[in-house]
């Protein structure tokens, strides 16, 4: 339970006299229950257990593909002075596509905490056994393999597919991509045989890999992932592709440097806790270890890659 918000006037006076916040406010650009919401709540729970903050609050602000939360966060700077914004790769994609005018450049990147990798899976009984068999099929008849994904054309699953296809010199525009409303329905389409291949996120696919319903051909991580040690990365298959859907924390643009250091330090401590590692394991999240300027540079790199891919796909000029 959170502290009553009504006593704000008193709190404002208090807050201005204290150094930095003893309360942390998360702005979540999605409804309750999703991945971003879960990330914020796991972090908050652990911060509270270890006493970094006395009170933690979460504000869900769905809408506009994350754009509404972003614009609110940036427009009401005084109110969100001490608040942090949780976000993920679609922030870059949607801002490149022009859905909203702001981008990650308007924020202060604090840390990248979690990575989800793109993965290509087929049904367990599919005759295609390896990525190279698949790429041969793609090369000879690109339109015969229908690929499903859990999001609209031009968003992450499609982009990851395009990245992989470009790396084997197949024009992504010749491959048929079928969008579904969410990864679960896309998975069902794979199981029902409506699509042959699925381009999706590793986290969501994990349970299906474990249960043996589907088989993974390749993953977009740079190095092999422990939990699926038998799945090759695209890089070791000889293709120069690595891609991660990050989830991270941002703060206001005019963040005092002292506060930035403090926040980065706190997240560094978070990473060391057993609770955090247990949460990662339980939820099937792969950790990502980026902070401050390293994270900012990573975002710049990723934006460049995404811009090229989206241009190749014809979504931006």
């Amino acid at each position: 339970m959170q502290r009553p918000q009504r006593i704000r006037l008193a709190l404002i006076l208090l807050a201005s006299s204290c150094s930095y916040a003893d309360r942390l406010h998360f702005v979540i650009p999605a409804g309750p229950g999703g991945g971003l919401d879960g990330t914020a709540r796991e972090i908050g729970r652990i911060f509270k257990t270890f006493g970094q903050y006395e009170s933690i609050s979460y504000e869900n602000m769905p809408g506009g593909g994350g754009g509404r939360a972003l614009s609110q966060y940036l427009e009401n700077r005084s109110r969100y002075r001490d608040a942090v914004l949780v976000n993920s790769t679609p922030l870059i994609v949607r801002s490149l596509q022009g859905l909203f005018p702001q981008s990650f450049r308007d924020l202060t990147p604090i840390v990248g905490l979690i990575a989800d990798y793109g993965i290509f899976v087929v049904r367990a009984d599919d005759p295609i056994l390896t990525w190279s068999q698949l790429s041969t099929t793609f090369k000879s008849r690109p339109s015969t393999v229908v690929v499903g994904g859990g999001s609209v054309r031009g968003s992450l699953d499609h982009i990851v597919l395009a990245l992989a296809l470009s790396s084997i010199n197949v024009n992504p525009r010749e491959v048929r991509y079928l969008p579904y409303d969410g990864g679960a329905k896309a998975m069902l389409a794979l199981l029902s045989g409506e699509v042959r291949l699925l381009s999706t996120g590793l986290g969501e696919t994990m349970p299906f890999l474990d249960s043996g319903q589907v088989r993974a051909l390749a993953v977009t991580a740079a190095e092999r992932i422990e939990t699926i040690a038998d799945v090759p990365t695209l890089q070791e298959l000889g293709h120069d592709v690595a891609f991660a859907n990050w989830r991270g924390i941002f703060a206001q643009p005019q963040l005092p440097p002292k506060r930035k250091i403090e926040l980065i330090e706190q997240f560094h401590e978070l990473r060391q806790t057993n609770e955090w590692n247990a949460a990662l394991q339980k939820r099937g999240w792969t950790p990502l270890d980026l902070a401050g300027n390293a994270f900012a540079n990573y975002l710049l790199e990723q934006e460049k890659l995404l811009r090229t891919t989206l241009t190749k796909l014809g979504f931006i000029n």
């Binding site: 339970m1 959170q2 009553p4 918000q5 009504r6 006037l9 869900n60 009401n76 109110r79």
Partner: peptide, 20 residues
Amino acid sequence: GWLLIEILLGVYVEPGTFWS
């Protein structure tokens, strides 16, 4: 409503710009 939604259920509702 405030007691139920914000205190009991712990839903965060924007307090409004006037108060900040």
